[in-house]
Design a protein around this nucleic acid. Sequence first.
DNA 1: CGAATAATTGACAAACGTCAATGCCCGTGG
DNA 2: CCACGGGCATTGACGTTTGTCAATTATTCG
Lengths: 215, 215
Amino acid sequence: MQVYTSATISLSSHLAQPGRPAPLESGPLQPVMFFPASSEIYAQGEKAGAFYQVEFGAVRIYRLLADGRRQISAFHLAGETFGFEAGTTHHFFAEAINATGVRVFRVTGGADMSHQLLPLALKGLTRAQEHLLVLGRQNAIERVAAFLVDMVERQGGLRQVELPMSRVDIGDYLGLTIETVSRVFTRLKDKGVIRLLNLRSVEILKQDVLQTMGE
Amino acid sequence: MQVYTSATISLSSHLAQPGRPAPLESGPLQPVMFFPASSEIYAQGEKAGAFYQVEFGAVRIYRLLADGRRQISAFHLAGETFGFEAGTTHHFFAEAINATGVRVFRVTGGADMSHQLLPLALKGLTRAQEHLLVLGRQNAIERVAAFLVDMVERQGGLRQVELPMSRVDIGDYLGLTIETVSRVFTRLKDKGVIRLLNLRSVEILKQDVLQTMGE
DNA sequence: CGAATAATTGACAAACGTCAATGCCCGTGG
DNA sequence: CCACGGGCATTGACGTTTGTCAATTATTCG
């Protein structure tokens, strides 16, 4: 089992960069921050005063057990939103997986953002509960299939899917070890369901088979 | 593995009963509905137009896989709220575990309830993500310990905890089989951590040990 | 009191994890 | 441009945990 000590957890500083023109729905220009690979966006216990939209790159949201076991509860790709949380402190860690740009929306005491936040929170809730079904009741091959189908859908249904995260990340998302993830990829490859173009991109050869596996 | 076919899924009708005085925060009297044990409160795919507060009894929220495997994503006890969902249709099933009274808050198009719903949604999101950590990264004894600690906290920290749900429900909540749940209860009993008063109530003898196990 | 249901227990099997060795990318520097 | 090194991924052998199947015991409800 892969374990994360305090030394393993990213300690990189937050590098703020000048914002660029905001191609966003409404409101004033929102700052875009740049995070290098494996840098921390926020930490568990930190005060939560903003929510975030991924401009480019990818983000992982996770929690740790005392002994270092890690569970990634979500990945967020370009265009997706994260970071709104109950109460005033973050319950999770957020890290950039690769070089990532994030648009920050500060939630001031005055402005009422319930209207914007509620649909995001509900969507996150539904996603988390679907993920519970995968972790609680599906075996290794079903979990990987469900993950791949999800990635396909989030990338517009293209045959070729980019996986911005490592095998370790995938394992920690699916509640599996890196070895099991690797073996399942090999099995899917041998069955002719997928083709590994390189470590970070997969071609889906039999979408329907994958879909059925992931239920 | 326990499996649920359409015959197994509750088909009981919704028995509405006259409401009683509403001991609630604000607003007009809200109707209380009564559901007998194992009756359906709402089903996956149904139109969602309300949220619910448990008056007495207990509720399970779950999803099914095509082959009948079930994952319970949450239990709701007296005083707790559930049923608000993204979009217009329910993504889950809600069933009364025992004879249960539920106060129904209809969400009309006009009234804006974001303020009330957002904190509930965020709390649910946090709970779901904590549950993900349990299912993804904890073993059987840790899962049961975490479950018992959660039940203790939700029942005010008393030594004696009531479990309104069956072992099957606990298994489907923790991603374990009923046999494994049973064996873990026995192990905890043999270790002197808990005492089984009867099938549905547990005395916590070593809260600290339990707490440590559940991390 | 007795039947039906739920829970426990045991023997065995299967899935996944652990440990260790090997292989493959990819970036860097000569 | 090629060679080398380091990190990540894959593969194999084996162990552990949990699931499956089946029998037994306990509990609840008529």
